[in-house]
């Protein structure tokens, strides 16, 4: 997994609720032979492009200075809906390193931590203020997310702390692979399975 320590850059205010993973990446892009790394151009395609395929200038992702922003600001329940991990791959392909929202869809949240994309939960009033500070100084405003110290630094220099599970923080900072860690517990798993085969033999086909 990619490590995440700190990111500084433009934060795009996509201030809507319930941004679902269908909106982030259309399912047929995951059926077509597009690689994980090749999904960026299709991220948010339903709002970035018009039906004729041309860019929609009204979409914030197509406007300067947000075009290459590494951070998204959003409202409640970002990443709800489908379990497709392609949503995380598409965001990363578009250059996104972190999303700040009040809370996230549970499966999306887990998928982020498997791929080094940081979901940061902050109260909505803090996010609204970050969005205001971004818009007040377009071109110059930058947001910093510091995972080591669990804090967000706003464009005006305000420091906003955030919380994250210690286990997940450690894994992200060090780019740890879940499978390798679990494999180290092979014997414990085997022991559990042996006793379960006696306790619940009908489960074991």
């Amino acid at each position: 997994m990619d490590k995440f320590t700190k990111v500084t850059g433009v934060a795009t205010p996509l201030m809507r609720q319930n941004v679902d993973t269908d909106l982030i990446i259309r399912i047929e892009r995951l059926v077509d032979n597009v690689t994980r790394d090749g999904l960026g151009p299709y991220c948010f395609e339903q709002i970035r492009f018009k039906p004729d395929g041309s860019e929609d200038p009204d979409c914030i992702f197509n406007q300067k200075p947000y075009r290459d922003a590494p951070i998204i600001l959003s409202r409640e329940n970002f990443g709800c809906g489908s379990s497709r991990e392609g949503a995380v791959w598409a965001l990363k392909g578009m250059g996104i390193r972190a999303v700040i929202a009040p809370y996230f869809g549970d499966i999306f949240n887990n998928n982020c931590f498997q791929n080094g994309l940081l979901p940061v939960a902050l109260p909505i009033h803090e996010i609204e203020q970050l969005a205001d500070e971004m818009k007040a100084s377009p071109g110059n405003a930058r947001v910093t997310i510091d995972l080591e110290n669990c804090q967000v630094v706003s464009p005006t220099g305000r420091t906003i702390p955030f919380q994250i599970d210690a286990r997940r923080q450690h894994a992200m900072l060090n780019g740890l692979d879940d499978i390798a860690q679990t494999m180290a517990r092979k014997d414990e798993i085997a022991a559990w399975q042996t006793q379960d085969k006696t306790a619940r033999p009908w489960v074991w086909l």
């Binding site: 379990s83 497709r84 499966i107 998928n111 498997q114 879940d178 499978i179």
Partner: peptide, 10 residues
């Protein structure tokens, strides 16, 4: 419950 691709591999 539903899971993502990485969890599936796990």
């Amino acid at each position: 419950f539903g899971i993502g691709s990485s969890e599936l591999v796990h």
